[in-house]
């Protein structure tokens, strides 16, 4: 298993370099100019100088190489410096946002907490609901509970968040006035009361996101349970005199969780990716919003870095899911 993990990590390097190149080229070749937002009154030669100042004068391959070095070497060094108070990266040029002129990574680090709070909570809530629902729906297939669950998950899966988001705002914020309609990112949790405020402002976006994620995972869980419930080993467990609880919650569940856990692990990068639409609807100042505004402003370093971080996360969690699979299923051997 360890050698498998190491081998996969080594193989991940060329994959990631290639991905980086694709991202870089796509953004580079896409139409759009960082100067397009600069007022027309600014003369062309000034704009040209501004472009040079952003480093756009150099040829593409040099810029790609520089970006790679910055991303893989200088930024990690900086992180190290910040953690241990060292000064290895001092004076080195970091990946700078064209919009705000501050290092991209610092901005991302500022936004990550909002996204993790909202999207991460939604993910955890969704898993906590989806797994029991999936288990029970499968065990009582075609019961009222299962039928109702099927209907709700179908709705939850097909209604887009820009609709459900607005709907819950209208119902719970405007009509009932229970929760604020706008998420206040500057809010700090210091005591119980401020924690309650934080909870209140999180509830709606979490609800909207969790509905969708719950729908997916509970369907998946149900299908996996149904697959396993009709296996011969279930009959064997019953024939040994095991109680229904043991049969379902130990024998069947342990088998059913294998694909579900993998799917959950593969979904984790999406948490960091943020929820572009939901964040927009509730004005959550997270990663999703950061990406959208960066795209609108042609902030290439920001878009490149964000996209590439997602790519790294996806590769890492793919590996993680594979390793998990090997741990959960004794039939899988990785050597």
């Amino acid at each position: 298993m360890l050698t498998f993990t190491i081998r996969r990590l080594i193989f991940a390097v060329p994959t990631l370099l290639f991905t980086a190149l694709i991202i870089f080229l796509l953004l580079e070749l896409a139409p759009g100019d960082p100067m397009s937002n600069v007022p027309l009154t600014v003369p062309d030669d000034v704009k040209q100088q501004m472009r040079l100042a952003l480093g756009l004068g150099e040829p593409m391959h040099i810029r790609f190489f520089k970006w790679i070095v910055q991303f893989f070497w200088i930024e990690p060094l900086n992180l190290f410096d910040q953690m241990f108070g060292t000064t290895f990266a001092e004076g080195k040029l970091r990946v700078i946002s064209w919009q705000s002129r501050s290092p991209v990574i610092d901005i991302i680090a500022e936004r990550i907490p909002q996204t993790l709070w909202v999207v991460g909570t939604a993910y955890v809530v969704a898993i906590a609901i989806a797994i029991p629902v999936g288990i029970y729906s499968a065990y009582r297939q075609y019961s009222f509970f299962d039928q109702a669950g099927t209907f709700i998950t179908m709705v939850g899966y097909s209604v887009p968040p820009f609709f459900s988001g607005v709907l819950v705002i209208v119902v719970f914020a405007v009509n009932l006035g229970w929760f604020p309609s706008i998420y206040d990112t500057t809010h700090k949790v210091v005591d119980w009361d401020s924690f309650v405020v934080q909870l209140k402002q999180m509830i709606m976006p979490v609800m909207v996101l969790a509905l969708q994620i719950t729908s997916q995972i509970s369907r998946f869980m149900r299908a996996s349970m149904l697959d396993n419930l009709e296996q011969d080993y279930v009959r064997t467990a019953r024939a040994k005199g095991m109680g229904e609880r043991t049969v379902v919650m130990v024998h069947v569940l342990r088998n059913s969780m294998i694909p579900v856990v993998t799917v959950i692990a593969l979904g984790i990068p999406a948490i960091f990716g943020g929820a572009i639409i939901t964040e927009q609807v509730f004005k959550v100042n997270g990663i999703g919003q950061l990406l959208i505004t960066a795209i609108q402003a042609n902030d290439l370093p920001m878009v490149q870095t964000l996209t590439f971080i997602f790519a790294v996360l996806i590769v890492l969690f793919n590996l993680f899911a594979d390793v998990l699979y090997g741990i959960l299923d004794p039939r899988i051997r990785y050597d």
Binding site: Q231, D232, Y233, R235, T236, A239, N255, D329, P330
Partner: peptide, 19 residues
Amino acid sequence: RGGEVGFVFQDPMTSLNPV
């Protein structure tokens, strides 16, 4: 079940829990 009546099933390949 299992205590007073034991049962051996038709297909040994699938009758044991794989995990």
